[in-house]
Design a protein around this nucleic acid. Sequence first.
DNA 1: CCAAAAGTGTTGGTTTTACACCCATGG
DNA 2: CCATGGGTGTAAAACCAACACTTTTGG
Lengths: 238, 238
Amino acid sequence: MLNVTRVSARHLSYPEKRMNVAVDIVIFTVQERALKVLLVKRGIPPFKDQLAIPGGFVLPDEDLDEAALRELREETGVSDVYLEQLYSFGDPKRDPRDRVISIAYFALISADRTLKAGTDASEASWWLVRRTPKLAFDHAKILKYALDRLRNKLEYTTVGFQLLPPKFTLGELQGVYEAILEKRLDKRNFRRKIAELKILKPLSKEYRNDVGRPAQLFQFVAGRSAKRAVSKKGQKQC
Amino acid sequence: MLNVTRVSARHLSYPEKRMNVAVDIVIFTVQERALKVLLVKRGIPPFKDQLAIPGGFVLPDEDLDEAALRELREETGVSDVYLEQLYSFGDPKRDPRDRVISIAYFALISADRTLKAGTDASEASWWLVRRTPKLAFDHAKILKYALDRLRNKLEYTTVGFQLLPPKFTLGELQGVYEAILEKRLDKRNFRRKIAELKILKPLSKEYRNDVGRPAQLFQFVAGRSAKRAVSKKGQKQC
DNA sequence: CCAAAAGTGTTGGTTTTACACCCATGG
DNA sequence: CCATGGGTGTAAAACCAACACTTTTGG
């Protein structure tokens, strides 16, 4: 409205060449206090026998999110997880055989979920994020991007809870944060911050004890908008 | 590494159907202390004669960023602007005629740049972000998404400077922030924050005076990594 | 009784907000 | 001399980081 500056613009027109569109999903979990990512071994070229982030092509009538969910189900047998679009990668040379645009997603699944066997020969397994081997395509770049995003989101949202089972202890929760941020956090400060968010309900009379004193179990209640989340930028590494 | 959980995974295979891939660019500027967005009137169906965000198809050998830059140049005659990928939209019905995946970008251009005439009949003009008419496709959603992102980035990065000419006053800078955040900021607090960033060089003996006392001109020096940027979450609206 | 993890408050430093007056120029 | 925007400091409140000991259980 209201402005006089005008320029001409090219007409939009339909192109000569269409492209392959895939979704690739960086699936994270935390096991044994370490952040892990699900990788599959490719059964076919290109990059046959190398490890890759799970993914697949978007079907003609599928929304991108649907495609990502479907792939996630196919690879892991799991639905109902946290899933978020990450970034799109479109280097014309990223697939050596044909042009493929990849819409990358990241997903968080809780450690208690065991993955069920899929339908074909490729196998998927969990790898320590810090010890991944060479990956197919530009998947190392995608993984790095996902990791950065996860770290950032941890500090201003409550995504971290997605990595835990429905009932968990504060120690486990802190373990998730420490695994992802790769630093130790102060227990008292951490608990104070979590408490301020008012998003945890203590389960009365429910405790867990492996070793040591039994810990109160909590449940995540998404309730209010979780403003300032758990962050500790400058906290000294213990 | 190290984990034993395994699931089968579908082979990746090349799909039957390819798709159209487009880039759409939300181009912002600040003029007269208001945030504006560049819209083009579509010359061809679908949505002929409606307003849309500028965009076009990705060419077969073009990276996504290149495609966005090219479109930006074609629509505005301007290169060398801030450009960032936003999100990808892929609802199968978003284009009524054929399936088109849109990779959305947002760009910031400084108010001093006048757009040069393009090469064909469609015309582009600046619209107040708060007063845009009905847009073609899902472009209203894309615009909203871009606006949210811009607001957020303003608070923890220095993107705001991209909306100003090379030389500017602190009043102008504050005006950009106020236009985007849609709230008044405290002058002294704003200036203190900017000063802490140490990213502005005062231009000695250079002043601007329209009305009132002449204001010192500054230059943006990208220099150091600009940690905590200008933010004022809970600042009282004056 | 030992080992292990759970649980719990206080203090000092830093950051953020609120707030008001004088200055230089043009008309 | 009036109108306009430029320029500047301080005090109170909120927030954040550092830090150590007691409790409960199992073995």
